[in-house]
């Protein structure tokens, strides 16, 4: 499958390459990972703001990988890693039409090495779709009328995505729905919320993302934060949830939930509440550090103010 030649990038050799095919050897038998957490337990999340100093706001989100030693070269699971930067609010270009609200734009892009199949550099439809979902989730949160004639860019790079299912199954019969996208979207909502808070854009509340699923195993019980490779998912739902206002800004449900759809949404909200504790903690920590820094700097200027100003005598 030769890729279309892109003259602005370095291209693959003209013959076209294919990803390696692994032989199934008895000494490298792969076992499907089993969920060891409780159904209502979330995986551990690492969230940190202020990772990109050149941006107005930024955050990094990671779901900690399971600490099983690697026995084979084929990774058995993937761990979500997302970075988000926010640029703005900044004035719109002069030729732009008047807008009484903050114009929010979202970009979601997977890194070429984010998934099992190598991805291209140009955004594909699934990435655009994620961008639209994210925008709806955020638009209800940002108080846009405080920034007329301004724009704000939310840029997300997924360094490592979630898998769509147990990959060995997908190779045999191909029953992988794109379940991994749901987890990626939930992560995107949470990380974008943290970055927006870091950028100091006014919001009505912190929005957090949560996923829940109905699985085929164990009598179709609902689980929070499903890891697609551990389950046989029948239906899944993502929400962007504002806890203090009890509002849902974004909901995306997939699969056949039947009569369980309401319970599924409730579960997704529960998952969002769980992620919110991490989000609030990260934002709080960052704010405390900022306040600590400014008060420290204030103290410093009072003590050594004279010496400091001497450093920069402005001449001609």
């Amino acid at each position: 499958m030769a890729m279309l030649a892109d003259r602005r990038r370095m291209n693959a050799p003209p013959g076209g390459t294919s990803p390696p095919v692994f032989a199934s050897l008895p000494e490298a038998k792969l076992t499907k990972p089993i969920r060891t957490r409780n159904p209502d337990e979330h995986r551990k999340i690492f969230l940190r703001t202020g990772v990109v100093p050149s941006a107005s706001g930024s955050a990094y989100y990671e779901i900690s990988p399971s600490n099983t030693p690697r026995q084979t070269l084929v990774p058995s699971s993937s761990s979500l890693k997302i970075t988000c930067t926010v640029h703005g609010p900044r004035p719109l270009p002069r030729n732009a039409a008047f807008s009484s609200n903050l114009l929010l734009t979202t970009h979601v892009k997977f890194a070429p090495f984010a998934t099992r199949q190598r991805r291209g550099y140009v955004r594909d439809s699934s990435e655009r779709d994620l961008g639209v979902h994210l925008e709806t989730a955020l638009r209800g949160v940002v108080i846009g009328d405080r920034w007329p004639k301004s724009g704000c860019e939310v840029v997300i790079t997924v360094l490592e995505g979630e898998e769509d299912g147990w990959w060995a199954d997908a190779e045999e019969g191909g029953k992988a729905g794109s379940w991994g996208m749901m987890n990626v979207l939930a992560g995107c909502i949470t990380v974008a919320s943290a970055a927006i808070a870091d950028a100091g854009v006014d919001c009505v509340d912190l929005v957090s993302g949560g996923v829940a699923a109905l699985t085929a195993e164990r009598n179709g019980e609902g689980v929070l934060d499903p890891c697609p490779s551990e389950h046989d998912i029948k239906a899944a739902c993502v929400v962007g949830y504002l806890q203090s206002r009890d509002e849902v800004t974004e909901m995306w449900m997939k699969g056949d939930a039947g009569s369980g759809s309401e319970a599924l949404i409730d579960n997704a909200v529960k998952a969002a509440v769980l992620t919110r504790t991490v989000l609030a903690e990260a934002v709080k920590e960052a704010t405390e550090m900022k306040i600590g820094k400014t008060s420290e700097a204030a103290v410093e200027t009072t003590n050594t103010g004279k010496g400091k100003t001497k450093d920069i005598q402005m001449t001609g």
Binding site: A55, T85, R90, K109, V155, T157
Partner: peptide, 13 residues
């Protein structure tokens, strides 16, 4: 990748 305000995605490299 949003690394700096001068390089906003959506444009060719």
């Amino acid at each position: 990748t949003g690394c700096s305000p001068a390089h906003i995605p959506g444009n060719p490299p």
